[in-house]
Each structure stands twice: as structure tokens, then as C-alpha cells.
């Protein structure tokens, strides 16, 4: 630090008065660290240790089982439909909410968050009441020969419901932070609405979008409660990977559910990896942006830095 000497002294003395004694600090770190390792890290290690407890050969034998393979395929299919569906919704909703003013906006925001506060089991039940044999549309669907409940469409719908807010929740604040000045400039210069969206809006929100997508995907692939209620648990047909874990758990081989669960644990690790990378990247971009602003404008507080709109208080 190259602060003037006087300032440096003041910093260190004020820090001393606002810091805990060393033994307090290190005991707090110790308790927190121990708690995190025992309660959060050991469960992860345990998944892999139990999965390989009968060796590599057994591990891959469980994964190569046709019923496991079909569960993996179903989970990938469900995620491949529900994630893009919620991305399209998230982009449309955030465009409307962030770029325009209209009446009932806060009510709309509340509605978008609703699926988060409804128990997944209750959400599954709702779809049975809609599309089940005795449901609202049951007779109509039966007449048309369409099966939704205890079939793949029901699993997809339940998954879309529970992952509904993920992308929208990431995109709305991201778009609000960007404002709409750049889009308006692009429109004034003759760009069409789609061009403006593709070349101006999308690049500015791409990291937030990706963040929402990976969270949405993790939940879509890992959802248990809602899917369990509507799936009907038909082995080889309507079992997703989490449901396959439960089925194997109730059978005789203790290593088998862990072998399948290890796939989901890997998914969680990849999700966390990408998430951490994105957070690091956003932080760095912000930092670089600030540095660039300083280079162009000079040190903040001097010259005309006060004219920068970015410094306006919240």
C-alpha cells in the first residue's frame, strides 16, 4: 500500500479497535471451518466412496444397466425441453419488465416467484388435478388418447413448473442494471428490434443468462418431489435419474444407489465450477471496467469524474 504515512497509521489503529482478539478470530474460523467440512464436504466425499465401495467394475455395471441408461436419457430429455422453455420465458419476461413501465408489474414479479414457495409435492399434485384421469382435462385427454400424468409430458410440465423462476430471476436484475439507453441508441441509428436484441441486449446479459441456465439445469436434472408425484415410477419408462436412485435405495445392493447418485453429484460439482467461474469473471469485468473508466477520466473525485452518471447514488 502506498498511502501517506499518516493515513496508514490511522488505518492500522482503527483496524485494531474493530477487530476481535486473535484467539476469538481463530476459534470462530475453526468452528465454521469444521462445520462446513463435516456437514457440507464429507457428504460429497461419502457419495463417491460408497459408489466405489464394490470396485470400478461394479460401479460401471450399475451405470450400464439398461434401466439406468434409460433414466439418464429421460433426465437429459426433460432438461433439454424444460430449460430452453424457461429461457425463452425468462428473456421475454425480463425484456418486458426491465425495459418498460406498466401497471401490475410488482404483481407479475410476485407471480413469477410463486413456484419457489410451493412445495414440489404440491406442484406435482396440481398437475394430477389438471391432467390426471379424474382431473379437469382428464376426460378430454382420455378421449383424445393423450397421456400426460404417469408419462413423460407430465414429468416435463412438473419440471418446468419447479424451475420456472430461475432464468427470469437472473435476467430481470441484469437487464434492469443495463438500462435501455444503448438499445434506444441502436434503434435511433436504424437497427430493427431483433437486431437490437441480438447485437446489443444479448451480449450485455449473456453471463447472467448462462448463470440462470446452469442453475435451472441443475434443478431440472435433480428435481425429485414434483417429478416423483407425476411419474408413476414405471421402471425403464418414467424413471428419471433421481427416481432411479430411490428405487435402487429400496433394493438389496447398497452401492448401486450411490453409483447413480455420483452422476448427480458430478453434475452439482460442474454446476458449482461454472457458477464460481462466472462470478469471478463478472467481478473481474467490473474491476476492469472501473480501471478503464479511471484511465479515461482520471482518478475519481478529480476533474470531471463527477459528471459520470455511473457514480450517481442509489
Amino acid at each position: 500500500m502506498n498511502l501517506p504515512k499518516k493515513q496508514r497509521e490511522r488505518t492500522s489503529s482503527s483496524q485494531r479497535s474493530t477487530q476481535e482478539p486473535g484467539w476469538v478470530k481463530w476459534s470462530l474460523i475453526g468452528i465454521a471451518g469444521l462445520f462446513a467440512v463435516v456437514f457440507l464436504f464429507l457428504p460429497l466425499i461419502n457419495v463417491f466412496v460408497q459408489a466405489f465401495s464394490k470396485g470400478w467394475v461394479h460401479y460401471f455395471k450399475v451405470l450400464a444397466d439398461p434401466d439406468t441408461i434409460s433414466a439418464i436419457k429421460l433426465t437429459l430429455l426433460v432438461a433439454a425441453i424444460s430449460v430452453p422453455a424457461n429461457v425463452i420465458f425468462g428473456v421475454a419476461a425480463s425484456w418486458a419488465i426491465a425495459k418498460f413501465e406498466f401497471r401490475g408489474k410488482s404483481l407479475l414479479l410476485t407471480f413469477i416467484d410463486l413456484p419457489f414457495s410451493i412445495s414440489p409435492v404440491v406442484s406435482g399434485l396440481m398437475f394430477i388435478l389438471l391432467f390426471g384421469v379424474n382431473g379437469l382435462f382428464g376426460p378430454l385427454l382420455d378421449h383424445l388418447g393423450i397421456k400426460i400424468i404417469f408419462a413423460v409430458p407430465g414429468i416435463v410440465l412438473a419440471t418446468i413448473f419447479v424451475t420456472f423462476p430461475f432464468v427470469a430471476r437472473e435476467l430481470i436484475p441484469a437487464m434492469q442494471a443495463e438500462g435501455s439507453d444503448q438499445e434506444q441508441a441502436a434503434m435511433t441509428m436504424g437497427a430493427s428490434g431483433w437486431q437490437t436484441f441480438w447485437y446489443v441486449t444479448l451480449p450485455s446479459i449473456k453471463w447472467g443468462l448462462l448463470y440462470g441456465v446452469i442453475l435451472c439445469n441443475a434443478r431440472a436434472m435433480g428435481e425429485f418431489g414434483a417429478v416423483s408425484v407425476v411419474s408413476g415410477h414405471i421402471t425403464g419408462l418414467t424413471d428419471t435419474v433421481p427416481l432411479r436412485v430411490e428405487k435402487l435405495y429400496n433394493e438389496f445392493d447398497p452401492a448401486a444407489p450411490f453409483a447413480v447418485a455420483s452422476l448427480l453429484a458430478l453434475l452439482a460439482l460442474v454446476t458449482l465450477g461454472i457458477k464460481t467461474y462466472l462470478e469471478w469473471k463478472t467481478e473481474r469485468d467490473e474491476h476492469q471496467g472501473q480501471q478503464l473508466a479511471r484511465e479515461v477520466v482520471g482518478e475519481p473525485g478529480k476533474n470531471f469524474a463527477r459528471d459520470l452518471p455511473a457514480h450517481s447514488p442509489k
Binding site: 418486458a96 425495459k99 418498460f100 407471480f111 396440481m126 388435478l129 410440465l157 434503434m187 436484441f197
Partner: peptide
């Protein structure tokens, strides 16, 4: 900026089908 009617319309449609209709069913 264009697209308010399109995006808001789609948002409300999708919200109704996926979220509000199931809740109404209960």
C-alpha cells in the same frame, strides 16, 4: 423500444399455462 406487447403477452400466457392454471386447479 419495440416488443412490449409481444413479450408481455407471451409472459402472461406462459405464466398462466404453467403456474396459474395448476394453482387454480387445486
Amino acid at each position: 423500444l419495440p416488443g412490449l406487447n409481444l413479450t408481455l403477452g407471451f409472459t402472461i400466457f406462459y405464466l398462466t399455462i404453467i403456474v396459474l392454471l395448476p394453482i387454480a386447479a387445486l
